[in-house]
Design a protein around this nucleic acid. Structure first.
Lengths: 232, 232
DNA sequence: CGACGATTTGAATAGGATCAATGGGAGTGG
DNA sequence: CCACTCCCATTGATCCTATTCAAATCGTCG
């Protein structure tokens, strides 16, 4: 692996506190792979052979049952996915595919588990990462159970707004079809929801969105830090 | 704490592999508390001072937003709850209340975190417990996103049936109101869903349910091991 | 015995899904 | 460069599921 990549990876929260030599050893078995857009990286039901870390690009986690399919969440740099399956030596519960060209760091499961046992700092980092993912899942579940479709959309827009600098402009990172599935609705319904939000100052132009009345949108959305905050 | 209780607790997966002396130390700070039914043990937004382990009874995890409330999951012996909040020193994302008289083991957060750092076996157990809870949450989320209300009910009944011995009889562990919220529907809708399932051999008499045609129910439910299995 | 909550049933409504059709870009190949 | 195709997004119409509101019944607990 190129050293430029290695130093980037070294700085990830997951690896930042661990022992130098342990990091070296673990990384010798790891590799960084590039994937084209819309490439299926893992498939639900497969055994977890690698921990995947999104270094560049964007990955969609989705699941199927019967004939239906739903986007569960998206993973941006720098976050891992399916850590729980690796640690339990179990099968993946979700599939993953790239939304754009992406670089994924792949670390063999046995190296993760082995290092976990010998490096205390790494063990702590693993637990933090796992807890963060867990809590994110709970938040998404709460979002779906406690809100209507329009409220979910409004809150998601406010979330994106905050992450992207709170300057009244949002750029959607993924297509509306994916966004719809992520929010638990159909593309048609998302389109109508955007129309409803016009009266709250939401102007849509392709993947560029302008918020002209954030306060009004907040009144509608009633954001809740126990659902929408990435911090707490 | 009474020794009878201690030995029961010692056998929990979470503690079974850890060092004797570490276990003793940790338990000196812990205590076992009894709660009456419908008692709110923790409230979402509070800081996580204790890890809670359900030793006896049943606990409901629920959440609120706006005026709405939803049951997120139920915790049976012997399982912990809100482990992630403890490990991250964060606030609870869910509230917890007893559904029946219950005994809860409470271990101060700092003892959990402290022991995590010095006992490797305990660290491993923590990770397994955390992963298991995480994966359960994902499964519930998939259930809600990928299935209709009737399918969710049918699969839940099959799940209870399996746990309770597969002899054609089910005893509901919690009221129908809670079950409805757990399944993401209203009590009225649950009642109607049970009526629909009559033609698939589901006979309801209060909290006692008989399944007279499990195969027909399975055809409807299309159970999926990546959603319904507690193992994988 | 009375009160309260849980459950069920009925009727009306709302919200979301489905089906169908159209317009618009992005990418492909001639 | 242009025509063609395909997929995405939008819109309209309709259907269906689930929620809401209302009321009756049933048990349980005090």
């Amino acid at each position: 692996m190129r050293s430029i990549d290695l130093s980037t990876i070294r700085e990830l929260e997951l690896f930042s506190n661990m022992d130098d030599s342990k990091f070296e050893t673990m990384m010798q078995a790891a590799f960084l792979q590039s994937f084209p857009a819309r490439f299926e990286i893992i498939s639900e039901g497969d055994t977890a052979d690698f921990l995947h870390v999104v270094v560049e690009g964007c990955v969609e986690l989705y699941a199927k049952s019967n004939g239906r399919e739903a986007t569960m969440s998206t993973v941006q740099p720098v976050r891992s996915f399916i850590l729980a399956a690796v640690l339990m030596d179990a099968v993946y519960l979700m599939s993953a595919r790239t939304l754009q060209r992406s670089k994924i760091l792949m670390i063999p499961s046995e190296n993760i588990c082995g290092t976990f046992e010998v490096d205390e700092a790494f063990a702590k980092s693993i637990v933090i990462e796992l807890s963060t993912c867990y809590r994110s899942a709970i938040k998404e579940y709460k979002d779906l159970k406690l809100r209507t479709a329009i409220e979910r959309l409004a809150n998601r827009l406010l979330q994106y707004h905050q992450v992207q600098g709170e300057n009244g402009k949002i750029e959607l990172l993924h297509g509306k079809k994916t966004l719809a599935s992520l929010l638990g609705m159909t593309p048609e319904n998302l389109s109508r929801a955007f129309n409803t939000l016009k009266q709250y100052g939401v102007e849509v132009d392709g993947s560029a969105i302008k918020l002209t009345d954030v306060n009004a949108l907040k009144v509608l959305a009633k954001p809740n830090r126990l659902i929408d905050d990435n911090q707490s």
